[in-house]
Amino acid sequence: MTEPILEARGLCKTFGALVASDAVSLDLRNREIHALIGPNGAGKSTLIKQLSGDLRPDSGQVLFDGHDVTALHVAGRARLGLARSFQVSSVASEFTVLQNVLLALVGRERGAFGLFRRVLSDTRLTEPARGHIARAGLAGRERDRAADLSHGERRRLEIAMALAQAPRVFLLDEPMAGLGLEGSGEMTALLDALRHEAPILLVEHDMDAVFALADRISVMAGGRLIATGTVDEIRADPEVRRAYLGEAVS
């Protein structure tokens, strides 16, 4: 068993009377896709935000590669290699596809204060950027503005940006959302290849994708983690069936 690269230990987070995270412990190991599922309002997004640094837990710890990063800000965790996609795809919409990926590379090389270091004419950046764009399936769209991309293409752009971050962990929040049948099929294939790059913590509602991709599944309900296990174990778990899966399993 390998050491977990990303680990949540007893995370608690309340908003007023609402307990969004109730002593949640979860880990992500190298080379795996770990899916996080649960009904709306189960606390998945709150958990992701605590892992990414957007929210501070009330108690508990977040460990990245064995180091406590609970107090580290979003940008700091990103520099450690935490790459994410957002629930609603989030890119710099006035920038071209290429510029968006270059932005990710600048973040990775900590080059934001390069006052005179050119970007678009620097092949040390543009060559790898084109490679990431091609891997995400957007070759030929480099000079299109992100605002002109379709919804599915913006999702792909987010993946290209995540790849450019030299990720050690992917945190992907509903990458299939709104993609349609064909789109989610393509995205599933893309994510399947990514697991060799870095492990993926995948929040997803699309059960076909989850069952196709996940090595392990964790199920949340009411702020608690009610089960973690392999696909077969989760399918068989009676509590999970009751809480969430219902007919999706049958």
Partner: peptide, 22 residues
């Protein structure tokens, strides 16, 4: 420059820029 890209990126989408380590 890289600085300009980061600055313009932060204007358009600060949340995203932050998640990229800037």
């Amino acid at each position: 420059a890289r600085f300009g890209l980061a600055l313009e990126g932060a204007r358009q989408n600060p949340e995203r820029v932050q998640a990229l380590g800037i």
